[in-house]
Each structure stands twice: as structure tokens, then as C-alpha cells.
Amino acid sequence: MSEGYLRDGREPVPVKESTSRSMRSNKGRDTRPELVLRKALCEAGLGGYRLQWKVPGRPDIAYPGRKVAVFVNGCFWHRCPVCNLPLPKSNVDFWRTKFERNVERDSRNIASLESDGWTVVTVWECEIGKDLPSAVRRVGFALGKHPKSRDNADLI
């Protein structure tokens, strides 16, 4: 690793520069799964949402008037129960702790929102890839609406 590597002290120095570059490129908002879901929600007549609304957890998509929060979770970072992805092979203790903290934070945020009267919908990255209409339906039902689509049957 080069001497010029900047760290914030939280993570171990990566073994490969390519790993570091890859991790730096991960975005916290406007990810591909979020964009795909947002487009599908609009096409189903479920627009009017807000992004990164200022409530616990800063939901990716929020309908503040209806108190519905939608989290679009990446399978790797939030530990999807369906995908059950393995831990990275290097710095295993660091990653295990990091993922445990992520899952605990997600649970706290959801509990806080629900105690404030919000309905929380978690949509997993893999779900968007495999069954987008189901994810759109779940958001629609949380809003008390039946989503529609231009080509109808796939979302209703």
C-alpha cells in the first residue's frame, strides 16, 4: 500500500489498491437498485415520494404524508437473509463487526420509525432484480393503493 493512502482510522488498510478503489466507488444514494425501483414506482402511479427524508435512517424513498418509508438495501452491506452472502476472505473480524453494526442500526431505525407511526418497507437488491413487480406492489399496499402499470397485469 502506498504511503499516501488516506484513512479515517475505521477500516484496515486494504491488501490491494483495486479493493480500495472498488470500495470508494460505492455510493450511499442513487444506486442502480434505487433508480430502478423509483422508475417502476412512477410508472405504477406511485410517484410523489421524497428522497433521503430526514427521519431516522434517512429512508431512500419516503412518502411523508402517508408515513411510509422505503429502504432499498444492498444484499452485501445489509446482509440479505435470502442471498446469505459469505464474509470477505480478508479482515474477517472487521467485516463481521461492520455487518453486525449495519444490521443493528437498520433494526434500530426501523423500530424508531414504527414507534413514530411509520410503515416501513424494506426492498432488497436481489428482489429488484428478480421480482420488481412484487416490490412495487408491497410499496403500493403500504400506501393503501393498488399500483397500476401501462401494461397492467404485471403489477396489479
Rank of each mutant, 00 (worst) to 15 (best):
S20M: 09
K98R: 09
K89W: 08
N109Q: 10
S134K: 13
V139S: 04
N26Y: 14
K54T: 12
E17G: 08
F76K: 00
P14G: 08
A62I: 08
R38F: 05
D131Q: 10
V55D: 06
Y49N: 06
D154K: 11
N91W: 12
G117R: 09
E34H: 08
V103D: 01
V82G: 00
C80E: 00
E17H: 14
V120T: 10
I128M: 00
V121S: 01
L41Q: 03
Y63Q: 04
S115W: 10
S112M: 04
K148L: 12
P86C: 04
L155P: 02
G140C: 07
R24H: 14
D154M: 07
S22F: 13
V36Q: 03
W95E: 03
N73H: 14
L51W: 13
S107Q: 07
G129Q: 08
R96W: 06
E11K: 15
G57A: 05
L41W: 01
G4T: 11
E125Q: 08
L85G: 01
K148A: 12
R38E: 10
T19W: 07
F76R: 01
V82A: 12
E100S: 09
I156K: 13
I110L: 03
G4S: 12
L87A: 05
P56T: 04
A62Y: 09
K39H: 09
S22G: 13
L46N: 04
